[in-house]
Nucleic acid binder design. Structure first.
Length: 210
DNA sequence: TGCCAGGCCCTCTTTAGGGCCTT
């Protein structure tokens, strides 16, 4: 049985062969950080061999080449390990609907299930950081002056940046008095994943004006 | 560089259409 604490959060990011598992696309890399009370306590990064060549566009976009994937473990082996890593944690991703589709598709292949709820940092950023020029992950990181090493479109780097952005937004909400001091990150995600973030953010803006 | 799909959100809306964001 997974030993992951119930209050932990996994921030994850997939690199893939394309946009849609329903169109035959597969994962080629998974990166994730585990947060407990907002602190990074563990990381996960693995390339995985999708069983076919990736396009030159994906090679250029991610820097992940067919040669790198040739000797990588299979998607099935990596995803079985990742399923154990996430345990029963709640999950965060930037544009989570994309990563959830691939997580669901790849875990279904290895008959692994997860119980955590998904929250989307992009949907929250669209409401909380309305003055950003765009809500692409890289643009938000630059806009909020979040430390980064300049690596984009690799799974662990993007997951780490998403985790930092996530904590910046949580801190802003707490500073605006939206959350009770005892409010736990797990509860935050539970609410956001149910779409109740709209009300929380409206309250945040109301508090900021008053 | 962009396309594919799909969910969310906005608006010149709801009997719809299109932009954003992810690879």
């Amino acid at each position: 049985m997974p030993s992951t604490p119930a209050h932990s959060v996994i921030v994850l990011d997939f690199e893939t062969t394309g946009l849609s598992p329903n169109m035959g696309d597969r994962a080629i890399e998974i990166g994730a950080v585990k947060l407990v009370n907002g602190d990074v306590v563990d990381t996960f990064q693995e390339l995985m061999n999708p069983g076919r060549r990736v396009s030159s566009f994906i090679e250029g976009y991610t820097g992940i080449t067919n040669n790198m994937l040739r000797t990588a473990a299979s998607c099935e082996d990596v995803m079985a390990k990742f399923g154990h890593f996430i345990g029963d944690s709640h999950l965060v991703a930037h544009n989570a609907s994309f990563d959830k589709r691939f997580l669901d598709a790849e875990l279904e292949r290895v008959n692994v299930r997860y119980s955590g709820q998904f929250a989307c940092s992009m949907l929250i950023a669209r409401r909380l950081i309305q003055d950003a020029p765009t809500h692409k992950l890289g643009d938000l990181v630059r806009f909020k002056h979040i430390d980064n090493d300049g690596v984009f479109h690799r799974a662990l780097a993007d997951a780490q940046m998403t985790a930092k952005l996530w904590m910046v937004m949580i801190d802003e909400l707490e500073q605006q008095g939206v959350f009770d001091p005892s409010f736990k990150l797990m509860q935050t995600i539970s609410k956001t994943s149910k779409g109740a973030m709209r009300g929380l953010l409206e309250k945040a803006r109301s508090n900021a004006k008053s």
